[in-house]
């Protein structure tokens, strides 16, 4: 018998082993109901995302956007132009670029309205297929975000109605705060599965529930009430 060295690569039980396909079956312990969860995740799929570019110094451009959408163009980083009733928002992305989000199915009409009102040097691009929106709600969302992004998400620095683009989980995301305990992430399609797994994993310790739209909204209302009570 020859001399040889063999190593037990996967001693049963001692080390957690994962199949190379483990990510496709990502499972974390979910809370039993939305009420028990401290973080609710809800994808708002198939919204209309449009990138608008133009000269913010041009009075005609700003007026054209306002006529087409009924919302003012935000001229600085931070505050969103948001119409919750119609589900339309405009966010400043860079000095000559804005992200417009409209309800599912309205992107074609929104683009047509913009093109009807704008003249000169501008661009409207429907990027709905390239990104999606995740809504995070619940009392522990801020703590979850603190684990994911270097951006300061303290209420003093990140009031309701603010939106920024920053590093998120070594990738990037648009982070928007749309309510006391309700946040939105706009993430790229190619990073969506990675970021979703990351967020689920990061949220597990708080108690996470992946919800449908209505459940998430009612839980967000409860969480906002809870935060308001804590603040008092």
């Amino acid at each position: 018998m020859s001399d040889y060295a063999q190593m037990e690569l996967n001693p049963r039980g001692a080390v957690k082993s994962e199949s190379p396909l483990a990510m496709t079956r990502a499972r974390v312990a979910q809370a039993a109901s939305p009420q028990e969860a401290r973080v609710l995740i809800c994808e708002k799929a198939f919204l209309g995302h449009l990138v608008l570019r133009g000269n913010a110094d041009d009075e005609a451009f700003r007026a054209g956007v306002e006529r087409a959408l009924g919302l003012a163009l935000p001229l600085e980083m931070g505050p969103l132009s948001l119409d919750e009733a119609r589900g339309i928002s405009i966010q400043w992305m860079s000095p000559d670029e804005w992200l417009l989000i409209v309800p599912a199915g309205q992107e074609f009409a929104a683009e047509a309205a913009l093109r009807g009102q704008l003249t000169g040097h501008y661009a409207v691009m429907n990027v709905s297929g390239g990104q999606t929106l995740l809504e995070l709600s619940g009392p522990c969302v801020r703590e979850l975000l603190m684990k994911c992004t270097p951006y300061d998400v303290h209420p003093r620095h990140f009031p309701v109605g603010k939106g920024v683009t920053s590093v998120f989980a070594k990738s990037s995301a648009v982070i928007r705060r749309v309510g006391e305990a309700r946040w939105e992430l706009v993430i790229r399609r190619s990073f969506a599965d990675y970021l979703y797994s990351w967020i689920l994993d990061a949220a597990e310790e708080f108690g996470v529930f992946v919800a449908s739209g209505e459940a998430a909204r009612s839980a967000a209302r409860d969480a906002a009430r809870e935060l308001a009570t804590e603040a008092r």
């Binding site: 980083m77 931070g78 270097p150 951006y151 920024v164 920053s166 590093v167």
Partner: peptide
């Protein structure tokens, strides 16, 4: 980490973003 002021965003941001 450095905090770097972006003149376009008008805000201090983490070095990681730059």
């Amino acid at each position: 980490m450095l905090h770097i002021y972006c003149p376009h965003c008008a805000e201090y941001r983490e070095e990681e973003e730059f």
